[in-house]
Design a protein around this nucleic acid. Structure first.
Length: 567
RNA sequence: UGCCCCAUGGUGUAAUGGUAGCACACCGGUUUUUGGUACCGUUUGUCAAGGUUCGAGUCCUUGUGGGGCAACCA
């Protein structure tokens, strides 16, 4: 795993003077000031049914960040109450991603399935208190009986049966007497409640499915509403942060806590993160994976944490991004460019530079001695003198970028063209002499002459060159494949069209593969944990997975450099 | 035609009744051996109408617009 420097602490730990960045932090500050809690305790509660994405990163940074800043604790809790969709692969991926982001669950690692016995006891308590009953309505009948948002529901015929009878039936459900779907346990609240979630919600169902942790111990499983709040309560969570769609569940969350008379955790909702030109639901991401649209959950085009990692994003950049995105309750769509900015911001100061030519054209220095090769030093990072420098071989035959030559150019073209003079980065100033085209009119070679007294660092030539080009010495170049990525969807909100499926908006050009790239020799020793800036091109990282598959080095472009050329 | 939530530049987010600020994006400039970085600057905003107040982005009312809620999913 990569060794990135520790991220700067955006906010000093436990700083009482720190201005709350958002309403949730304000609540915490107020609660602490009022002595409501000695210490805050948050949790991150993913369901292990998919990989974490950048939206989860926002939630993680929130709950872990708050606990960190206020000296509290955080739990990692796997909300595993639906065995049909959950498995260990997802648990492992989630653990890996959270720690990669740089967070530790100092409050502990838990599973809702750890509480199945306790939860069962809570259900019994509810039944005994007359607050729950076993129902036998079919799903269709139950839906009909629920009413609609504008119309009250109707009571189930089983609603009035005795506690004793429900208790016995519930025990039978647990014992496996009843087939799947035959009975459910429902909270007895109010079928006419304006909030649909309060109309006698189902809290337990019979489901014979193998659970990734409890195996076949249970054939009844609690529903989210009956598990989540109680799990928070059991763990002593003080501030339970979740996204807006759970807002309507809060009355139910509180109803269970009050009725069961357990520790009152408080649920607070915030708006989920939306990124433009992508989709963020696990269901849709799963579809892309299953339909083979992408290479897997960690495809570098995916907004998943593992995809971003493989793309070359750093934990620091993701944390900075989450910090800039803010926390509020209004719907939002964040520009992808903010994520890109966060990466550039981090890598500009931390990544070593190297030279690579993606679309190579031969560059011949006609007046450079035929058999000579000299070593020229080049700084590794102009933003960080301590990064030092490396020696670059230079000789008569080099590779240059095809885009850096134009047959006809005006004054605003700083690169090579007939009559133009440019500098080769860390080497010499060169002047155009000639160029060779093939039968199809495609550029084959560019011939230039160099000025021996213009050597980088000891330039006495007095010649001014407006442009600077990157280059790679042909004889010592390392061959590589480079993958360029663009947004996965061409539409800013692919899932925002009611009548169109989001896959209709897939960007056909989201992946471009360059197979004949030439890298400077120092890159032969590169490993995937180290991001590089390829001079003038962008930030790149070695793709370990692909490299292992293909046998030749495969590099991913994480993000381009900002291109200020308006040409 | 029920209940809940939300509304500040292009985007995101501050302003806790007292000068509408910050970041990203955009545009322009300076520096530059990366058309990068850094630095400087311009443009752009309180959904509407009433009300309370010396004073309203903020409080109240009514609209308007957006989102959510009717899984034995989470």
């Amino acid at each position: 795993m990569s060794e990135h420097p520790a991220p700067e602490q955006a906010h000093p730990k436990g700083s009482e003077n720190h201005e709350p960045a958002h309403f949730i932090e304000q609540i915490i500050k107020d609660d602490l000031a009022a002595g409501k809690h000695a210490q805050i305790h948050t949790r991150f509660p993913p369901e292990p049914n998919g990989y974490l994405h950048i939206g989860h990163a926002k939630a993680i940074c929130l709950s872990f960040g708050l606990a960190e800043r206020y000296g509290g604790r955080v739990n990692l809790r796997f909300d595993d109450t639906n065995p049909e969709k959950e498995n260990q692969e997802y648990v492992d991926a989630i653990r890996r991603d959270v720690s990669w982001l740089g967070y530790e669950w100092n409050g502990g690692e838990f599973y809702t399935s750890d509480y199945f016995d306790t939860l069962y006891g809570f259900a019994v308590q509810l039944i005994k208190g007359g607050h729950a009953y076993v129902d036998h309505l079919t799903p269709e009948e139950m839906a009909a009986g629920k009413g609609t948002p504008t119309q009250a529901g109707t009571n189930s015929p089983w609603r009035s049966r005795s506690s004793a009878e429900s208790l016995q039936l519930f025990e039978e459900m647990k014992a496996g007497v009843h087939p799947d779907g035959h009975g459910v346990l429902r909270a007895k609240i109010d079928m006419a409640h304006p909030n649909m979630h309060m109309r006698d919600p189902v809290i337990y169902r019979v489901k014979r499915a193998h659970h990734h942790r409890t195996g076949d111990d249970w054939c009844i499983y609690p529903m989210y509403d009956f598990a989540h709040g109680q799990s928070d309560s059991i763990e002593g969570i003080t501030h339970s942060l979740c996204t807006l769609e759970f807002e309507v569940h809060r009355p139910l969350y509180e109803w269970f806590i009050e009725t069961l008379e357990i520790f009152p955790s408080r649920q607070i909702e915030f708006a989920r993160l939306n990124l433009d030109h992508t989709v963020m639901s696990k269901r849709k991401l799963l579809r892309l994976v299953e339909e083979g649209v992408v290479d897997g959950w960690d495809d570098p085009r995916m907004p998943t944490i593992s995809g971003l990692r493989r793309r070359g994003f750093t934990p620091e950049s993701i944390r900075t991004f989450c910090d800039r995105v803010g926390i509020a309750k209004r719907e939002n769509v964040i520009h992808f460019s903010l994520l890109e900015w966060a990466l550039r911001d981090h890598l500009n100061r931390s990544a070593n530079r190297a030279m690579a030519v993606l679309d190579p054209v031969k560059l011949v220095v006609t007046n450079y001695p035929e058999e000579q090769t000299e070593m020229l030093p080049s700084e590794n990072n102009p933003e960080d003198p301590e990064a030092g420098s490396r020696e670059m071989p230079f000789s008569k035959t080099l590779w240059m970028e095809r885009d850096d030559f134009k047959e006809e150019a005006n004054k605003k073209w700083f690169r090579l063209a007939p009559g133009k003079t440019v500098r080769l980065k860390s080497a010499y100033i060169i002047r155009y002499v000639d160029h060779v085209m093939d039968a199809e009119g495609r550029l084959q070679e560019v011939h230039v002459e160099y000025f021996p007294d213009s050597k980088s660092g000891s330039d006495t030539s007095g010649i001014k060159a407006k442009g600077t080009l990157h280059w790679v010495n042909a004889a010592t170049a390392v061959d590589a494949e480079v993958r360029l990525y663009d947004r996965l969807f061409s539409d800013p909100t692919p899932d925002g069209h009611a009548d169109r499926d989001f896959t209709e908006f897939l960007n056909p050009d989201s992946l471009e593969i360059k197979t004949a790239c030439k890298l400077e020799p120092s890159l032969a020793q590169a490993d995937a944990s180290r991001p590089y800036q390829f001079t003038r091109l962008g930030y790149f990282v070695l793709d370990e997975k692909r490299t292992a598959e293909t046998g030749t080095p495969v590099w991913n472009r994480s993000v381009t450099l900002k291109d200020g050329w308006k040409g």
